[in-house]
């Protein structure tokens, strides 16, 4: 994204410059105004790294259709959304879910919606699913849901998936959960796979690019510290929970996380729309003070860097 000079700044700067040039001797006085407390700057647009298309099977979501969802996101200054497919959690024909996802993103707005397919390495012929995601659907990454797709992250299958994705220069998003397990429909009994093995996988496959999404219920403070030590892991913000917690994590003031600061270059904006209210993720950008640099990294720079390697 280009750095833009907003209208307010432009008017302020050009006005002061013009007057200063026209009236010698006024520069010092005008400088006082220029240093007066500034109103908020115009912020950048946002890359949302965690949304889903299609239907959540247990509820008709308020913004479940692609059109309402995209309009909602755009209303909140989101310019790009990495979209998975809810169907991938439950369908056996996972290639069908990936193909529909790609077609929907392409049909609707390929500049806005970036399809993120899914591959289940415990099911037959998954390497072909990965190949199609890469070669036929031109997806930059895949998203796995270990608890729903029953993927043991310590398994050789999962490590193999990460290796093969890395060979294709595709990133891997690992989702913690999508819904508070306390509220699951009683028929649903998801696995509760540990995220501990991600440390070993990320270390064993250093060229892999891994993003944890909606991860917080799975990652306690000590595990987060070990994950942060690995440079090939980044985190979305969709379920970073607690008063001011996103900024607090960056500034060593976390309520529940590690005491040490986690650099802003490890966090990517994620909303979990349409399941979550997108306003939640947005307000987290304001609840704790963050510098312009930190905000820009979370809002789009880190995502750009992660996606475009």
């Amino acid at each position: 994204m280009k750095n833009k000079l907003n209208r307010r700044d432009f008017c302020q700067q050009t006005l002061f410059s013009s007057i200063a040039l026209a009236l010698p001797g006024t520069t010092q006085a005008l400088g006082k105004f220029a240093r007066a407390p500034m109103k908020p700057k115009e912020g950048p647009q946002i890359v949302d790294t965690f949304v889903h298309l299609f239907e959540w099977p247990f509820r008709k979501l308020k913004y479940s259709g692609t059109e309402p969802l995209v309009q909602k996101l755009k209303k909140h200054q989101i310019r790009e959304a990495w979209a998975g497919n809810f169907e991938a959690l439950f369908h056996k024909d996972i290639d069908g879910t990936n193909r529909r996802l790609m077609e929907e993103c392409r049909r609707y707005d390929p500049d806005f919606l970036k399809p993120i397919g899914s591959v289940n390495p415990t099911w037959p012929d998954w390497e072909e699913d990965l190949r199609r995601c890469h070669e036929e659907y031109h997806m930059a990454g895949i998203r796995v849901h270990p608890d729903y797709q029953m993927i043991d992250l310590a398994s050789t299958e999962f490590r193999s998936l990460v290796e093969k994705a890395a060979e294709r220069n595709m990133f891997v998003q690992i989702a913690g959960d999508l819904e508070d397990p306390r509220h699951h429909h009683p028929l649903v009994n998801t696995r509760n796979h540990s995220f501990e093995p991600i440390v070993d996988v990320a270390r064993a496959v250093p060229q892999a690019r891994i993003q944890l999404v909606h991860w917080n219920r799975k990652v306690r403070a000590d595990l987060l510290s070990r994950l942060v030590e690995l440079p090939n892991i980044v985190f979305d913000s969709s379920r970073i929970e607690g008063a001011g917690e996103l900024g607090a994590l960056m500034n060593g003031e976390s309520w529940y996380g590690p005491r040490e600061s986690i650099p802003a270059d490890r966090f990517l904006f994620g909303s979990h729309a349409p399941f979550f209210a997108v306003e939640s993720a947005l307000l987290k950008l304001f609840e704790h003070y963050m510098t312009v640099g930190q905000l820009e990294q979370v809002m789009y720079k880190n995502a750009n860097g992660f996606y475009n390697v």
Binding site: P40, K41, G43, Q77, E253, E279, L282, F286, Y289, L295
Partner: peptide, 16 residues
């Protein structure tokens, strides 16, 4: 923590 400063304008993001 800079307790009162917002670097960007929440209204730009559809927030109060």
């Amino acid at each position: 923590m800079n307790e009162h400063k917002f670097e960007f304008d929440p209204k730009q993001y559809g927030l109060p």
